[in-house]
Amino acid sequence: MARYLIRRLMLAGVTLLLVTIIVFTLLRVVVPLVYADAADIIAGEYGRQDPALIAKLKEEYGLSASLPRQYFKFLNELAHGDLGRSLFNGRPVAGEIKDRLPVSIELGLVGLLSGLAFSVPMGIWAALRQDKWPDYILRTLAILLNAVPGFWLAILIITFGSVWFNWAPPLKFAYIQEDPIAHIKILLLPALLIGLTPSAGLVRLMRTQMLEVQRQDYIRTAHAKGLTGGQVVSRHAIRNALIPIVTVVGLTVPSLAAGTAIFESIFTLPGMGQYLVSAVGNLDYPVIQSTNVIFAVLIIASNLAVDLSYPLIDPRIRY
């Protein structure tokens, strides 16, 4: 296990390095080729595209050095924990991320957990009631949820909530350490909505896996040795059905991270998504590069956690 962990951590390092190269290349080579670079954007605001102004801006923002040199500078600073400063307002990126990352992680995590809390029992229930009305209802609901984008549902809830009940979600964000109740009130609805869309797929997957497992010989054996239906499901069926679920959950993390941006905008939450979106609009290189690295770390960590959880779910799996 320790060797596996070390190997994975080394691989994670390589993956991160590749991420920095890909992000830097896309942002600093491909985007300027097909669109513009940050200096063009700022010069455009000034209404000019003259080379002298662009050169001056590049000098001012540290963009005039060769690209490899800029890349290694970025890497060196990253290695020293310095994520740089926004080109547009000079704020340290690390400071912004420190404030915003916990909000996004919490939002994504609560969304994921609420999605799991809904989808796993519902998937099991649908499988146990195969081709009966709970199964039909849950399958229909799952398809409906899959078809409805979460942000659209959020806007519907807010619109009709306000028109019919003069209700709106809380407006003022409070950090958990400041006011836990207010914090829960503001985060709960967006988190639940974030979890809703992936939960639809998970209900269907859990149902399929349970149906599959229930046809296995060891389940028949468990029944034959006199275990009750509940005991068979809880001791033998669920654990074996969970492995694909855990894998899919690991794969869901990136989309959750990306999907929080629109919810942060709708519910005015100070998270990473909004920060990244506004930075992309301005081609604010340090912010985009650093937030991508942070997201990559999160995704690598979540995948590692998923892999490490397999032996806990199924003891036959060993590293």
Partner: peptide, 10 residues
Amino acid sequence: ASGLAQFRAK
């Protein structure tokens, strides 16, 4: 829509 909802909710 979010702004209008907040306005309606005072």
